[in-house]
Nucleic acid binder design. Structure first.
Lengths: 230, 230
DNA sequence: AGGTTACATTCAGGAAACAGTCAGATACTA
DNA sequence: TAGTATCTGACTGTTTCCTGAATGTAACCT
């Protein structure tokens, strides 16, 4: 199938670039605009398969945009971006139909995962909710991680870290890369936290795996070793 | 069979969008209009299988619309939307034939369930009134919930919550999702209420089940665990 | 090889976020 | 009026996240 088309609507250029780059890299066909009016004409012209829509826009809010699009007959799912401290009533009804929302600041991995999840349900994508890498399998619907038939309980951050590693098996990932993908984009703490979380992950995974799964490449980063993808 | 065609008639754009989005996602073929005159021509042109009709419309009330349609020979069932404080005599006679009514504000899950129930009766749909998930079975006609041959008495909200969980087994559902689907669309309270009701449900279900049924996925939401659909 | 340095691992601990439960206020129903 | 049902808010306990320090280990240089 064709690469899904995604339209990004956000007035902050940083976020727009961040999302555009990541989503292009993930294989989507991306277009980005900075306000509601441009969003509407872009939707009419391009008919994207999914819209990433900031609810706070300079000219009109995201809900007006949604309303205009829906009444014009466009049914593509929307992933809303909301501020964490938006008042409750503003973020009600955001998960209706195929829609979903993510709060800012988000992590890039998270947003890509959510987009894929939505597309999996709306387009009858053949893609699986199950990620496999060697002895490890991860179900993104149930959030269940299984290693050698043993279920491993992970905290949210551990889960996201492992997912990022599993999506890039047998490739060295620097701590900076990991930080950029797994942690929220405004995190400005030390890269040492990656070491901590790798340590946590190893403790849980290696307790049930036959061999050490995460290899350290001193001076470069970490790598998830996978015996051989079949 | 073809997807059933549904016509939505309501003058509030928010409600129209909400219903349109949810019903489309539930697999219906949806069209929406904002007044009685448009409703009549839409019915004549499209011959929908079911009409969702607000009784308070700007140009004419829902009953006039109904009368016009019935006398023109159209027999498709109607789901009326009424205000909660509508007097009883107004509501009288709304459920004759295959018709039914729902009071505003409603919950989305509720309205989808009612529509399916009507269609189950009018079209000879193959779909079942019985939902099953592991040890639990729920009859939507009798509202009877059975776990391991034991009948469990649930309050209305508990019932709707469990139904939503059962319709999405083995999938983590966030509190926001649960709130959006199970509670009325104008509910403006805290997500903590979901925790309370999960707590109530667990107390009733786990009293008769062999194992804990609702799993907490910390930081993500809740999930109904089902052994394995065969 | 040995010493030095930079890099990694692990642990402990405090703050904050999250979850479970309950009692009580309010509204609704019979 | 009694009995449910719903919702709120408080309280408690747990988990998670992150930092910083102590300990280990590989690489580098002479």
């Amino acid at each position: 199938m064709e690469n899904p088309r995604i339209l990004i609507v956000d007035d902050e250029p940083n976020i727009r670039d961040l999302l555009t780059t990541s989503l292009r890299f993930s294989g989507f066909n991306v277009q980005a605009v900075g306000n509601g009016a441009a969003a509407i004409s872009a939707v009419l012209a391009e008919e994207p398969d999914l819209i990433v829509l900031d609810v706070m826009l300079p000219d009109m809010n995201g809900f007006s945009v949604t309303k205009r699009l829906r009444s014009a007959g466009y049914t593509a799912p929307i992933l809303f971006l909301t501020a964490k401290d938006d008042t409750q009533d503003k973020i009600m009804g955001l998960t209706v139909g195929g829609d979903d929302y993510v709060t800012k600041p988000f992590s890039l991995d998270e947003i890509v995962a959510r987009i894929k999840a939505i597309l999996r349900r709306t387009m009858q994508a053949d893609e699986e909710a199950l990620i496999r890498a060697g002895e490890i399998s991860m179900d993104q619907d149930t959030h269940e991680v299984v290693v050698n038939d043993a279920v491993v309980e992970l905290s949210p951050t551990e889960f996201k870290l492992l997912r990022y590693l599993m999506l890039n098996p047998n490739r060295v990932l620097s701590k900076a890369q990991i930080l950029d993908h797994v942690w929220e984009y405004d995190f400005n703490g030390d890269a040492g936290i990656v070491e901590s979380y790798v340590s946590y992950l190893r403790r849980k995974l290696d307790a049930v795996s036959t061999e050490p799964l995460i290899a350290t490449k001193r001076g470069f980063g970490y790598m998830l070793k996978v015996a051989k993808a079949s």
